[in-house]
Design a protein around this nucleic acid. Structure first.
Lengths: 125, 125
DNA sequence: CGGCATAGGGAATAAAACAGCCCTAGGTGC
DNA sequence: GCACCTAGGGCTGTTTTATTCCCTATGCCG
């Protein structure tokens, strides 16, 4: 049996932010919600690489962490909207900085990332 | 047996950046390397919450992804230094934005994060 | 009724990521 | 010789995260 030696601590700010954004699609979700893609089904269409399930899971976590608010409209067919909270909005500069950096360096990054096993990402033709 | 339905793709910039920063301590490592903590043992001391192992692993990945360069000084005792590459430096604004946001909202975030199972983070005293 | 859309969750499984332990190699100090 | 510094890698087990499949509920269209 292993003995837990190291406690999880949230020492520096970076770790806190990472923790909030931890999850494969959280930052992408925030990115799209900020761009007025607010309904679950629209988000799912906007992020086809993610499964419905994870998206729901991560939306729940974002809500729990106070970054988005969830409004359920009591109607048929059901309608739900996610909105950024003030806290979520305050994160936008970070998200958009990530978006911009990623796009700017896409050409450099893609081959490098493809070389690692973690993201296969073969465009497959 | 399940069949893989969804391919990993790196659609939007956010995903690329997340991919690069994926790993529990990568952003923290970059943060510290930027602040002149360059030797592995110093980084390990700076981030006591992380194991030696992961830190090495993630430093390797950062190097593979072109964010840091590794210099091995052929001397005894061994000496290694990590430096940010130009690419790594270009990521700094993002990291520092994360650091700042995390620190600014620490008071709000910590209770929320503590409520989720993922990061226990009980200060234990 | 059957199929579609809406939204969402449970259970099982797979795949990563991480933690912990042990090992190398060479010089210094006791 | 033994312990410690430096740096780093192998192996195994645990934990976390993501994927897949299947289920609910309700109104509309054919």
């Amino acid at each position: 049996m292993y003995q837990k030696k190291i406690e999880r601590t949230l020492d520096c700010g970076v770790v806190l932010t990472k923790e909030v954004l931890h999850g494969k699609w959280k930052s992408t979700l925030l990115h799209f919600i900020a761009r007025d893609v607010r309904r679950p089904s629209d988000l799912q269409r906007a992020i086809p690489s993610a499964t419905r399930r994870v998206l729901n899971l991560q939306l729940n976590e974002l809500e729990q962490h106070g970054l988005v608010s969830k409004t359920i409209f009591p109607q048929l067919p059901p309608k739900v909207e996610y909105h950024l909270t003030r806290l979520g909005e305050s994160l936008l500069p970070v998200i958009e900085a990530m978006e911009q950096w990623g796009n700017e360096h896409r050409a450099t990054l893609e081959p490098l990332l493809a070389a690692t096993p973690r993201s296969a990402s073969e465009p497959a033709g």
